[in-house]
Amino acid sequence: MARISYSGIGDTLFQQLLGHNAQIQKNWNKLEQAFYQEGELDGDLKEQVRRTLAFGNGCKYCQAKGKAVLDQKDSKTSLAIGFAELFLHHRSFINQATFDVLSQEFSETEIAELCSFICFTTASQMFGAIMDLQPE
């Protein structure tokens, strides 16, 4: 059981926790849909980044789908996973050289999407962790 009751507003337990404020839940969902249904980055890349972040951010609900696959054949996905790990454990060391490496594989549009996806996903997972949201 989460730290507060579920609101009954929303399709998932996560949404039902946010559903105590319907406008926040509605807009949060819109942004999440934008990340997963739009953008330049591949869906599998984003899923591997999400899985990486889940374990670093401590959200048990988000960990339920398992860890990221580290043995990637796609160099962009490998780099994105590595960047997510750097963000989790050494974000103060992210500098221009890091972005120079990213720019060898990603366009500026993709870099902006990757960074915003990492930040949004971290916010979601931190909310799940602080609420002690457990897998269904």
Rank of each mutant, 00 (worst) to 15 (best):
M1D: 10
A2D: 09
R3P: 02
R3A: 09
I4F: 13
S5T: 09
S5D: 06
Y6P: 08
S7W: 11
G8I: 09
I9R: 11
F14Q: 01
Q15D: 12
H20C: 09
Q23L: 15
I24G: 00
N27E: 15
N27G: 02
W28P: 04
N29L: 11
K30W: 10
E32K: 15
E32W: 12
Q33F: 07
F35G: 09
Y36N: 13
Y36P: 04
Q37E: 15
G39A: 06
E40V: 10
L45K: 04
E47P: 02
Q48L: 03
V49R: 03
R50C: 08
L53T: 02
A54H: 03
A54R: 01
F55M: 11
F55V: 06
F55A: 05
G56C: 04
G58R: 02
C59I: 05
K60H: 04
K60Q: 13
Y61S: 00
Q63S: 02
A64G: 01
K65A: 13
G66L: 12
G66S: 07
K67S: 07
K67I: 06
A68H: 05
V69D: 11
V69R: 09
L70T: 12
L70F: 14
D71S: 07
K73F: 06
D74R: 04
S75P: 12
K76M: 00
S78D: 09
S78G: 15
L79E: 03
I81M: 00
F83D: 04
A84P: 03
L86Y: 05
F87V: 08
L88P: 12
H89W: 14
H89M: 08
H90D: 15
S92Q: 14
S92R: 14
F93I: 05
I94F: 01
A97P: 02
A97R: 14
F99P: 06
D100S: 14
D100V: 11
V101T: 13
V101Q: 12
S103P: 03
Q104M: 14
Q104A: 14
E105R: 09
S107E: 05
E108R: 11
E108G: 06
E110L: 07
E110G: 05
I111H: 06
S116G: 06
C119P: 00
T121P: 01
T121Q: 11
T122E: 01
A123D: 00
Q125A: 07
Q125T: 04
F127C: 04
G128H: 01
G128W: 02
A129E: 13
M131H: 08
D132G: 06
L133P: 08
L133N: 06
L133C: 03
Q134H: 05
P135N: 04
